[in-house]
Design a protein around this nucleic acid. Structure first.
Lengths: 128, 128
DNA sequence: AATAAAGTACGAAGTATTTCGTAATTAAAA
DNA sequence: TTTTAATTACGAAATACTTCGTACTTTATT
């Protein structure tokens, strides 16, 4: 119980993505990372990260001149959140529809398919 | 080429979901459907559907007193778009990670599991 | 200590989305 | 044909999200 709902916005997700990937970073580095894709003002990134800190998505610690920010939420929890949103928002809650569409459209390798099949068999075993 | 990007908002998606599921409907019915989950004013639904019509997400035809609205975009295209976004944006492109997380967290029924397994076997058969 | 550089805080404007009230229109019923 | 009920159109307020300028603070350099 007590599972709080995590719901980063699109831009927040972008920042989380960077921090999950590269580890804790100061604003400057995150901003530079973002700028590889598109122009983003420094204070834009800063403000967003401050908001995320208030929302509890990021933690920060004083480090020399400024702050270093780190993700405060788990990648997996966030994945689950987005997955649920997709599942219920677009697939009407049908996991099998979702799964079949994923598998159908992304030439999944033999090995991956096998892995998934085994996983399903394991799940089937549990519901005795 | 020429694949236009379809990007319904959250609320628009909810309406599309209903229409994909139940077929073309008048505003009233869509609104009633929405109200099963949460209170939504009739004119709220109406306005949204009008906007979606302007954006080209819905078509409508005069039918008796009012209009009947139908989805103008394909369920599968929209699903695929959101799925890709999730897969690459949050799951680093790994379909099996995504699939296993879906199955692991949503007590998928025996029947669904069986259906998926059969689907995988069918896919395996194709790569002779 | 004075200056410069780096970083932060704050506020607010710009944009998109969601919501709904009210007035006008249409079609059916009386 | 008048009245009533259903439906639509319009506008605008409420909310959420994104963006950035400016002024303040802190730390390093001279």
């Amino acid at each position: 119980m007590g599972n709080k709902v995590i719901k980063p916005t699109e831009s927040e997700l972008e920042i989380l993505q960077i921090l999950w990937e590269k580890g804790p970073l100061p604003v400057k580095d995150v901003n530079e990372e973002q700028n590889k894709g598109k122009e983003v003002g420094y204070t834009t990134t800063l403000k967003l990260m401050q908001i995320m800190n208030e929302k509890g998505f990021l933690t920060r610690s004083k480090e020399g001149r400024g702050h270093v920010y780190a993700p405060a939420i788990e990648k997996d929890d966030t994945r689950q959140q987005y997955l649920d949103k997709l599942l219920f928002g677009v697939f009407g809650g049908s996991a099998s529809n979702l799964v079949m569409q994923v598998l159908g459209n992304h030439k999944t390798s033999e090995d991956e398919l096998k892995e998934i099949k085994e996983y399903i068999e394991k799940l089937e075993g549990e519901n005795v």
